[in-house]
Amino acid sequence: MKIRALALFSAAAALMSVQAPAFADAALAQAKNCMACHAVDKKMVGPSYKDVSAKYAGDADAVKKLAAAIQKGSTPGKGNWGPVPMPANPQVSEAEATKLAAWVMTVK
């Protein structure tokens, strides 16, 4: 019985450790005002994080590109996501932008 309980506890702990970073980075996205224009699973002013992740899947430079867009914004008409450009977000540090971009790429 103790072995079964230990196995269940270990499995639950492993699942929680996989989920914890996603929640932490969603909290960072909320704190940095990203959620004012984006949502995890639906288009708002900007694309959903699921759509961004799908678009950049397989792109080795995705995190770098997304982190730059988070900090510097995007230019309208460059084929990004439509007519509304993403504004620069100067309150996000380079490390935070990289963390946010890496999280976005995990959203499925």
Rank of each mutant, 00 (worst) to 15 (best):
3 I>L: 12
4 R>W: 05
7 A>G: 05
8 L>Q: 07
9 F>N: 06
9 F>H: 05
11 A>Q: 09
13 A>W: 09
18 V>E: 02
21 P>T: 12
23 F>P: 03
24 A>I: 07
25 D>Y: 15
25 D>C: 03
28 L>V: 11
29 A>Y: 06
30 Q>G: 05
33 N>W: 15
33 N>I: 00
36 A>G: 07
39 A>H: 10
43 K>L: 00
45 V>Q: 06
46 G>P: 01
47 P>K: 12
48 S>D: 00
49 Y>L: 01
53 S>I: 01
54 A>W: 05
54 A>L: 06
55 K>P: 02
55 K>L: 04
57 A>N: 02
60 A>Q: 14
61 D>W: 08
62 A>T: 07
62 A>P: 02
63 V>E: 15
66 L>T: 04
66 L>I: 15
68 A>V: 07
69 A>R: 11
72 K>W: 12
73 G>I: 11
73 G>R: 11
73 G>Y: 11
75 T>I: 15
75 T>N: 05
77 G>H: 03
78 K>T: 11
78 K>H: 04
78 K>S: 11
79 G>T: 06
81 W>N: 11
82 G>W: 00
86 M>C: 02
86 M>V: 02
87 P>N: 01
87 P>G: 03
87 P>F: 12
90 P>S: 01
92 V>T: 10
93 S>M: 02
98 T>D: 13
101 A>L: 12
103 W>Q: 04
107 V>S: 14
107 V>G: 13
108 K>G: 15
108 K>H: 13
